[in-house]
Amino acid sequence: MKANTKISREKRKQKLKRYLGAWILLLPAVIVLYLMIWRPSFMGIVWSFFKMKGYTPTEFVGLDNYIQVITNSDFGRVMWNTVQYVFWSFLIGFLPPLLLAFMLNEIVHFRTTLRTAIYLPAILPGVSILLLWYFIYFPNETGMLNMLLAKFGVDPYVWLNDSRFTIIFIVIEMTWQGFAATMFLYYASIQGIDTTLYEAATLDGANPFQRFIHVALPQMSGLVVLNVVRQMIGVFQVLQQPMVMTGGGPNGASTSVGYQMYQYGFVQGRVGQALALGTIVFAILIVATCFYFYLNKKVEENQ
């Protein structure tokens, strides 16, 4: 036993020496990560237990900030809204990039043109997209969708003002804004699939739909699962959309956890509560991220 540990210690020393150069190369990244991510996150967690005067902690108050955040009557509503964002973004946002990637792979002509056209939403600046959709959804006859409805003789609809569906309409916008990047991940993955598999399936008389279900999907299932988890983590933090398009309304119907945090921190000046809510979200997302890494490992093992 003892000899064993000694040997392994020696080995480790050698290893460290061998990788010293690598460590040095990593240093700038580590410093930046430390200053930009680790330290703020750590300080945020620590300060969430303090009474804050602006950004200066004044007094240790234990769980006070957390109690205030959780007992706030908006907390449950905001959490539920956020879950709805995640749920709808899964339901609405999951298929389009996958199907488009497959279609793009199947078509023969104009592939490059289409690829560029499909990617266009992803290169527009975020806030301009939101303002664009603000006018697409505008709830009188000057809104774009209502103009279309008018062509069919339908009265203008209030879109984002309809609190039952506000989140769904926002998620549709998010899908439009975000699907291109995901689609290209899938597209690259499909391109990596052995073409002989396709040829064999085609010879066996499989139509494109069957090829998608039986050939492409099993090959890229790992990536799909990872993307879904990644998307959940991303959507859980949604902030921009409700902030720009609805202000979290009507009557709080689209307020997400992220937007609530923004309200605490930058509108109401309740820094302690903002940090506490941030820490709660951080904890939830850490669990999700661990799950992601676990899946990622599984996926890599399978390949």
Binding site: F138, P139, N140, P156, V158, N161, G247, G249, P250
Partner: peptide, 8 residues
């Protein structure tokens, strides 16, 4: 009132 009631 106007049709759009989300008025910033």
């Amino acid at each position: 009132f106007v049709d759009n009631i989300l008025i910033d």
